[in-house]
Design a protein around this nucleic acid. Sequence first.
DNA 1: AACTAATGTCAAAGAAATGTAAAATTATTG
DNA 2: CAATAATTTTACATTTCTTTGACATTAGTT
Lengths: 223, 223
Amino acid sequence: MIKVLVIEDHEEIRDLISYNLSKENCETICFDNANEGLIHLENNDVDIILLDLMLPGLKGMQFLQIVRNNKKFSGVPIIIISAKNTEQDIINGLEMGADDYLTKPFSIKILIAKINAILRRNPAIKSKVISINGINIDTGNYTVTVDGEDVSLTNKEYELLLMLLKHPKRVFTRNQILNAVWGYESDVYTRTVDTHVSSLRKKLGDRGSFIKSVPKIGYRADI
Amino acid sequence: MIKVLVIEDHEEIRDLISYNLSKENCETICFDNANEGLIHLENNDVDIILLDLMLPGLKGMQFLQIVRNNKKFSGVPIIIISAKNTEQDIINGLEMGADDYLTKPFSIKILIAKINAILRRNPAIKSKVISINGINIDTGNYTVTVDGEDVSLTNKEYELLLMLLKHPKRVFTRNQILNAVWGYESDVYTRTVDTHVSSLRKKLGDRGSFIKSVPKIGYRADI
DNA sequence: AACTAATGTCAAAGAAATGTAAAATTATTG
DNA sequence: CAATAATTTTACATTTCTTTGACATTAGTT
């Protein structure tokens, strides 16, 4: 059963989503505000979030930011469903870390298709464990082992490792890494990434050498 | 490397754009007038154009019209960046064929987001993989394989190979190559190109022989 | 064939980018 | 609020890439 957290202040829309998703092997938990949604998220297992932006109290974008900046939840996919329909709204939403953006009015069939597509595309979300090349990341417990040995990583190191290992072989620019791990607002030098790569490699020991620098570009997990 | 042609008569804005895009895997070529921009477009590979409207000489809208009426360039996305900010201005720009319209003052971050969004959406440019004659370039990941074997290229070698293979058969002069790969500012001897061609051929092994020198002119990918 | 002019290649020098330790700063925690 | 940990910056070491210049080779000309 897929657990869907719905944050939406219009009752009719909540009901529409609930009713239709219940027929698709989904369990929906609905809130009319983001604060309660956040509390739920902190205490429960959630597979995907459907988020309205214009909410009373905590705004949708703030919620998005909080969730994406929290290592515990950052892997949970979020689909924004909003009446804010300018391209800029959409870009903002996607850049803030949403996985998809639906503008109201929306087709419930498309919504279902998108939920399925996102969950299909991202098996890591279901398993919550990434195992590759002797390195094991349990995204549920935020623990990392290398060849069975526990390794203690700092937050930034962890996020960096996760980013690289979620997409092995893919090259990330230092700025992409900064945006993803440090956030869009951050103004740290790009070389800070190098420092963290360095300490990450060190902590991973012999196994750390899979993190390859790509001169003039950035880094990649070469596995 | 995404090639961005910037046509903008204010130096500060050109510099702002150049500086920020250079950190985003973009290479910017700037002109303070549309005439030179057009000449550049005719002789070089351009992925996206950022266009100011109020220019000395050839006006931005005229440039837009010329580009959109030319089959050769009509696929190149154009983002207008203009101080003309009435609804009618924007509608005009978009109706004339611009892909997007940013009003000054603009946020550089939104500009970057829009460039990414447009290029992501545009399948012609998105063609992330070039496969030809046993050589495979993944432009997203900067990886090159020859007959399935990974080949490690330096940045210059990679850009050079990409340029040649994007337009097979086409002859490039050493100066065109220098401009495209090294950039306009560079003051490197033209023979440097030869050195890189040499090492590129070597790294590509038997397959490397498709890079033919065209005596007195330059090089071409003869495939 | 000899000559000329171009391209091909190599290796050393130079430039630029990355690696890393340690100091400085900032955040977190008891 | 002190102590501790995490993060960022600095500075320097190291590595890698780029450019050059010398010489070799090839192609074209007379």
